[in-house]
Amino acid sequence: MEEPIVQYKNIRKSFGDVEVLKGINLDIMPGEKVALIGPSGSGKTTIIRLLMTLEQPTGGIIEVNGENLWLMQNKKNELVEADDKHLRKIRGDIGMVFQHFNLFPHMTILENCMLAPTIVKKKDKADVKKTALEMLDKVGLSDKVDLYPSQLSGGQKQRVAMARALMMRPKVMLFDEVTSALDPELVGEVLEVIRDLAKAGDMAMILVTHEMDFALDIADRVLFLNEGTIEEEGHPTEILVNPKSERLKDFLTRFTNSR
């Protein structure tokens, strides 16, 4: 049987006195597309931020390819807190697209895409440029490569952000409410790119999203989070069309009504 690429084992996370994750267990298989839905404050963004090492869990273990993310063995075979080198090694398999894009405003679109492969992976600049141009073409921005982020629309910025993350060839890609900061008419173009990526197959994807129809369309599995626990999980149609728990029903009704 195939091994999961990411495993959350009883993950807990508190901010001060507030416990936002109360023991999360979750396996992600290679190539699997998982959508996280739930009310705001349910902890769904925290789940992916922990994997990206933007936050540190207060309890539990996260494993990537069977390797512990936050702990490592030192020379005496003791488990110690992971150092930067260990984190960077594991992080190489993970990419992330942010709600607010977080493009580098002082670099052109092309430079945004070329930076990490050139300085982190130390690849040849000419090769990187070629790949970056291909990647930007794929997201439909080949005519914008020399512009700065401030000259783009939100949807275009988000497509650049995806190209930039893809340049690192991650095995797991995290999407943090990538359409929430966009004007409604720009959401479509971004979802289109993600859909293409999902169809291409081999990359695992974890999406925190409010786009239910979209989740239904591309996800292999949908997780409903509520107050720091996974309340219900299953196939998209099962979750979205035939919800079992009252809270999920409640959430879905409120969600459809508010649209």
């Binding site: 090492t53 933007l54 930067d84 992080r91 942010f98 607010h100 982190v120």
Partner: peptide, 25 residues
């Protein structure tokens, strides 16, 4: 803060983050 987070997500070292992202801005 998002600039730091994006640099971490792209696996830049702390020094690279300072030199390429934070200090120029």
């Amino acid at each position: 803060q998002g600039q730091t987070e994006a640099s971490i997500a792209l696996n830049l070292t702390r020094f690279q983050r300072m030199r390429h992202i934070i200090v120029p801005q």
